[in-house]
């Protein structure tokens, strides 16, 4: 019992996730800067930003709903943490699991997005209102391709449980390479989920200041930022667990390093995407997700169904 609590609270639970999210943010910003031929921040910058924001004055707009306004960042943080507890990291089992936890994790990762939208809604500011509506519009455009992409590999494994999917692909040799198309779709939609260029429409600085977060200051904004960074790690871990199911040997250190490399690689891919594109418009994002991403994800599902019917049987 105490061991489980320690696992949840310290390693590989909450504390580990927070530390990893800071490192992830640093890596993302540094690579982004390097690709733009800049210096980038020093290693302690994410921590410094977090502490600075915590120390800042908390201002809540007069018209905002105080209770919900304060509660939303914590809801966002906790839902990401819960999702993270169910994702297997360097072992085939996660801290907590049940049959069908992939679906559960996907839904837990949707909750932060909803809180961003609600945050904008309850701020009662025009910019935040527009941002809130854009968050929802964006959610509707990327969520379906993301679900289809993540669930495509599970068709082959005939299971919605992380452990069984990983076991299946480990036994199947290099069968996981089949899911490459879905992996690409998942990376692109993850970019949308994390609201980064080219899908940073809800936060488009030059249009609606900071979108839903316009009225958020100080500690509350710090928790939203933390939630966003943890979401990056959780999303990367999810994609790593489903699409890169290898490196689950018997040595802990070895497995741990492979996990870190996987997450770093995915964050690197996200950083590259955010470097080389311009921001899309809402309508362009919608048509891109539904015209291109969803059919591509469907193709993957089709391939997997054919493989399952023709080869595996």
């Amino acid at each position: 019992m105490i061991l489980l609590l320690l696992k949840i609270l310290v390693f590989p639970g909450i504390l580990f996730l927070v530390v990893l999210s800071m490192i992830g943010e640093y890596f993302d910003r540094k690579v982004y800067a390097k690709m733009q031929n800049r210096m980038g921040p020093p290693w302690f910058q994410p921590v410094a930003d977090f502490i600075k924001l915590l120390a800042k004055e908390l201002i809540i707009p007069k018209n905002a709903d105080r209770k919900i306004f304060k509660a939303l960042p914590l809801v966002a943080c906790s839902s990401v943490i819960i999702a993270y507890l169910y994702i297997p990291l360097w072992r085939k089992e996660s801290i907590m699991s049940f049959n069908g936890d992939i679906i559960f994790v996907l839904y837990m990762l949707t909750i932060p997005t909803l809180t961003y939208s609600l945050a904008g809604w309850y701020s009662r500011s025009q910019y935040a209102l527009i941002g809130s509506m854009r968050v929802l519009t964006q959610l509707f455009s990327y969520e379906v391709p993301l679900f289809m992409a993540v669930l495509a590999p599970t068709i082959l494994a005939s299971s919605w449980s992380f452990t069984e999917v990983i076991n299946f692909y480990n036994a199947g040799g290099s069968l996981w390479l089949v899911n490459f198309i879905a992996f690409a779709v998942a990376i692109v939609t993850l970019q949308g989920k994390l609201e980064k260029v080219p899908f940073d429409i809800p936060e488009a600085e030059t249009e609606i200041v900071a979108g839903s977060f316009t009225e958020y200051t100080g500690p509350l904004f710090a928790y939203f930022r933390l939630a966003m960074n943890m979401q990056t790690i959780a999303g990367a871990s999810l994609v790593a667990a489903v699409f890169l199911p290898f490196g689950y040997g018997s040595f802990f250190i070895f497995n741990f390093i492979i996990y870190i490399i996987k997450v770093t690689f995915i964050i690197f891919l996200l950083a590259v995407i955010r470097t080389i594109f311009a921001r899309l418009r809402t309508d362009q994002m919608l048509s891109f997700c539904w015209k291109y991403l969803a059919p591509i994800a469907l193709v993957q599902i089709l391939i997997n169904v054919i493989i399952k019917a023709a080869v595996l049987k």
């Binding site: 690709m35 733009q36 031929n37 800049r38 260029v197 080219p198 940073d200 488009a204 600085e205 030059t206 470097t275 080389i276 594109f277 311009a278 921001r279």
Partner: peptide, 8 residues
């Protein structure tokens, strides 16, 4: 248009 790389 959010294309910061070109800006830099």
């Amino acid at each position: 248009i959010g294309f910061d790389t070109l800006l830099m």
